[in-house]
Amino acid sequence: MRTLRRLRWLLADLTRVVRALARVRAEARRPDPPRVALARLEGGPWAERGRPNAYRVRVVNEHAAPRPVVLRLAGDADGAPPLETRGAHVIPAAAALDLVLLTDWRARFDLVAEAPSDDALAFLAPREATGRCRLSAVLEAEREAPAALTIAQPLVR
């Protein structure tokens, strides 16, 4: 009985593999045009409420001409009202634009060009998480499907 069940699983998986190979062929033929996309959304190992926390956002334009985009960011931390910001930017041709979101996870939620110099050593101190915070970025560009990335971190006091 067990052997039969295993054989059935194997056959089902083999069918899936054959279908996947067909999709690989289709993928190989699919054009891969240049695009405007969210490349990265990164924070530190944790965030601290009440202090500025920096998040790196990278938007990439692979086209041979500059492209206007709208970047929307939304965040929520345990028990705090949701935070939002949006900004319009022009990404130069064949280039990446690095932006920084600064938030204290209370009221401040600003998209800026450069992060202020911070104390990287703060991340060395052992901290106890009291909750979690979540940050989403949505990118809208003409003739492109909206792109989104989400990250989450422990929130420390």
């Binding site: 490349a39 990439v60 792109a147």
Partner: peptide, 13 residues
């Protein structure tokens, strides 16, 4: 679940 870093479909590094 989401982690402290996420990546998209393309990047220029």
């Amino acid at each position: 679940g989401p982690e402290p870093a996420a990546v998209g479909p393309v990047d220029l590094d």
